[in-house]
Design a binder for these strands. Sequence first.
DNA 1: ACCACAACCTGGCCGC
DNA 2: TGCGGCCAGGTTGTGG
Length: 273
Amino acid sequence: MPELPEVETIRRELAPQVVGRRVEAVDLMWPPVVARPDPDLFRRILVGRQVQALRRRGKYLIWDLDAGWHLILHLRMTGQVYVHPASVPPDRHTRAVVRLDDGKAVHYRDVRKFGRFYLVQDEALVVGGLGPEPLDPAWTPEVLFQALQGRRAPIKAVLLDQRVVAGLGNIYADEALFLARLSPWRPAGSLTWAEVQRLHGAIRQVLAEALDARGTSMRSYVPPSGRRGTYQQRRRVYRRTGEPCPCCGTPIVRERLSGRSTHYCPACQPLPG
DNA sequence: ACCACAACCTGGCCGC
DNA sequence: TGCGGCCAGGTTGTGG
């Protein structure tokens, strides 16, 4: 579920609670939540480690630990992170609990069990394949334009490819394409330089708005504080099928593209030809 | 390189 | 209350 703005919001809320703390114990209610190494080794390495920093890369949350270790978490569709007093028992959807040296515990909840933990020293093993961060100054319209060259897949499918740019998901891809007035079906390589500049600006704008709103809480996304995000009130097309386009009033349509629900205004985002 | 599709899982919602 | 069908913010792997 969480895309860049949601993971970044989680990072910002969680950092003050965990940075500087030491791990005292790890409880795995559902051991397969650990992707690597095996759960026993995972627990043995993690216990005793001190959290030095909390970072985000794409949709991954990275805990920098001492001794060169990184605990990397991907929340996939329904992962949630909460901090509770040690006395709070895990609920039925809590898959792992990391107990800290201040009497608090980080609970990882995940209804659909898709999310995974990775404990590695070489973080590139997990996040090495990711493309650039869209909010990094180094990610310019030129970089995006270059990445689209020669690609005939629909632009939306390419935006969802985390090797092209890291952190976009279904909500913000639809929203950015609407802002840029581009059909999601346009072959990526067919975008003109002017269109790519527009798209680049739209991606930045949508992500900035969503960060400001602390993410989109339509379904299961709730940050650690419990303060739901509010971007769902500002979204223009995502899950607004049949509602009037905020720009021209044409009903928003929903179509399946690369297996994903895709929402757009057929009038503002026409497919040439 | 691309696409369609399935898989991984569970729960919410809708209509009957 | 129940049942079937469809939906879900992500990623990976298979086969064509």
